[in-house]
C-alpha cells in the first residue's frame, strides 16, 4: 500500500457563471520515502492538487469527488480539527513564500517549539533543545544564537530553511512542497533542494514536490507527474519522462526549455496557451494545440494508458490497436 493514494480526485470552483472543474479525475500515489514531482504550467492545477491533499483549499474551491488516503486512512472527508492534527504531524507543508508560513511577531525558535509541543508531549525545555537541533540540521549557522531571532532577521534562503525545519519538526511522513525554491536565487536554489532531499532521505519522509521548474524536478524527483488543464498528462520515472517523453505535451514542454550547451537556433514551441478553466476543450484538453491530433482526440477523453515504456500517458497515440476503449 502506498503512503498517499489519491483516486479520481475532482475539485470544483463554484462561481456565478457555473462550476469550474479545476481538477478532473486525478489519481496518483506516493510511496514511503519517495519524491514525486508534480510539474505543470500555471493553471494546470498542480497547486490545487496539493492544497486539496492537505485540506487547505480556499472556498469556493472544494473536493467534489474521489478519495485521498494517507496510509490507508481516508483524509478527504475529515472534520477540520482532525485534519488540522494530521497537517503538521503527518503531513508537513512548504510554500513558495517563506514569509507566509512564519509568524512575523514571534521568534523562529518559539514557533518551532510550539509546533513540537502541539504534536508531541515534549516539555518546553526539550522542545527548545529540539528546535535548536532542527535549525542546525537545516544548516542555519550558530542555531543556539539565532533561535530567538525573528523571521525578518533572516535572508530569503535562510527563511526557507526555517520553514523546512518547521515542516520537519515532528517527523511527518509526507511533505507537500509547493514551489519551494521559486522565490530564491539560483545559487540558493541548489542549496535548498539538496537540503530538502538529504533530510527527507535521512528521515524517510516522502515529498510531493510541486513546481513549474523541470530542472528542479529532474534532479530531485524519483517519479514525475505532468499536469495539463486539471489532469495528469503523463506519469513515470523522472529519467524516462525527461529523456523520452511520450505525451505530445510533455515532448513539447521538454523541447521548449532552453538547455545549456544544446545549440539550437529556435526552441521548439507549442503554439497557443493553456485553456482557461471555463473553456476546456472537449475530448483531450490538449487536442487543439497537439501536433499529432487525430479525429478521436476531439471527441473522446483519454485516460492514462501504457505506452510500451515505463511511462503512462493520457494520449490516444498509445491506444491498444484494434481494441475499442470505452469509459
Amino acid at each position: 500500500m502506498a503512503l498517499l493514494e489519491v483516486e479520481h480526485l475532482r475539485v470544483e470552483f463554484e462561481t456565478r457563471r457555473g462550476n469550474l472543474i479545476a481538477i478532473d479525475d486525478v489519481s496518483l500515489a506516493i510511496e514511503e520515502g519517495e519524491v514525486l514531482g508534480v510539474v505543470g504550467e500555471s493553471g494546470a492545477g498542480k497547486s490545487i492538487t496539493g492544497m486539496a491533499i492537505i485540506g487547505l483549499l480556499e472556498p469556493p474551491g472544494r473536493v467534489t469527488g474521489g478519495e485521498i488516503r494517507l496510509a490507508g486512512r481516508r483524509i478527504d472527508n475529515l472534520a477540520y480539527d482532525s485534519m488540522r492534527r494530521i497537517r503538521g504531524k503527518e503531513i508537513g507543508a512548504i510554500f513558495q513564500d517563506p514569509l507566509t508560513s512564519l509568524n512575523p511577531l514571534y521568534g523562529v525558535g518559539r514557533q518551532l517549539a510550539e509546533t513540537i509541543m502541539a504534536h508531541t508531549d515534549a516539555s518546553p525545555t526539550a522542545a527548545r533543545a529540539r528546535a535548536i537541533q532542527l535549525l542546525g540540521e537545516v544548516g542555519i549557522p550558530a542555531p543556539e544564537r539565532r533561535i530567538d531571532a525573528y523571521p525578518h532577521e533572516f535572508s530569503g534562503g535562510m527563511r526557507q530553511r526555517v520553514v523546512i525545519a518547521l515542516a520537519l519538526a515532528v517527523n511527518p511522513r509526507l511533505i507537500i512542497a509547493d514551489e519551494p525554491t521559486t522565490a530564491l536565487d539560483v545559487s540558493i536554489q541548489a542549496q535548498i533542494i539538496q537540503l530538502l532531499k538529504g533530510l527527507c532521505r535521512e528521515h524517510g519522509t516522502a515529498i510531493m514536490l510541486i513546481t513549474h521548474d523541470m530542472g528542479v524536478i529532474a534532479e530531485t524527483a524519483d517519479r514525475v507527474a505532468v499536469m495539463y488543464a486539471g489532469r495528469i498528462a503523463e506519469v513515470g520515472p523522472v529519467r524516462d519522462v525527461v529523456k523520452s517523453a511520450k505525451h505530445p505535451y510533455t515532448k513539447g514542454l521538454m523541447g521548449s526549455i532552453p538547455i545549456m550547451g544544446r545549440e539550437v537556433e529556435r526552441l521548439s514551441q507549442i503554439d497557443g496557451s493553456m485553456p482557461r478553466l471555463n473553456a476546456i476543450p472537449t475530448g483531450c484538453a490538449f487536442n487543439p494545440r497537439c501536433p499529432d491530433g487525430m479525429a478521436r482526440c476531439g471527441v473522446e477523453r483519454p485516460d492514462l494508458m501504457a505506452t510500451g515504456g515505463p511511462n503512462r500517458a493520457a494520449c490516444w497515440l498509445y491506444a491498444p490497436l484494434g481494441v475499442a476503449v470505452h469509459g
Partner: peptide, 9 residues
C-alpha cells in the same frame, strides 16, 4: 554555471 539544473540528466 554549477548551479544550473541538470536537465540533460
Amino acid at each position: 554555471l554549477d548551479t544550473i539544473p541538470d536537465l540533460a540528466m
